[in-house]
Design a protein around this nucleic acid. Structure first.
Length: 116
DNA sequence: CTGCTGACTGGTA
DNA sequence: GTACCAGCCAGCA
């Protein structure tokens, strides 16, 4: 037969969880980034909804942050998210992550400023 | 099926 | 800096 790759019923959510699981300790990824890695670069909001219901210990949802290095949400316990990140070496000052480029995952690859 | 929700994002005021 | 708005998308009633 021809295994026509039909979309699984939970293709997106599964991919999202898979991506989040791959985030190494001490690193963070934005909702938009996770969405992009899951195949839907504009589904950042949907990713947030999935995170809201993940509740799995094997899914480090605290490593998923909002764009611009902002903390994002965490089930109403913003402090807990900060603590978890701090325990991994990710320092949050105010509502912003310090040294975002250092803790971001995947690695930030900016284009050359200009080769001139 | 339609409609609303919301751990988002980028823009404007 | 904060507040609000429109666009976007998967999940669910």
């Amino acid at each position: 037969m021809h295994p026509v790759r039909r979309a699984q019923p939970d293709a997106f959510s599964s991919r999202v969880l898979s991506v989040v699981r791959r985030i190494p300790p001490g690193r963070v990824a934005t909702y938009g980034e996770v969405a992009a890695l899951a195949g839907r670069p504009r589904a950042a909001r949907a990713v947030g909804n999935i995170m809201r219901g993940c509740g799995r210990p094997d899914v480090p949802c605290h490593r998923v942050i909002a764009a611009g290095g902002r903390l994002g949400g965490y089930g109403g316990s913003e402090t807990l998210k900060r603590s978890l990140l701090a325990a991994e070496g990710v320092i949050v000052s105010g509502s912003r992550i310090r040294e975002l480029d250092r803790v971001r995952w995947p690695a930030t690859r900016r284009r050359a400023p200009r080769t001139s």
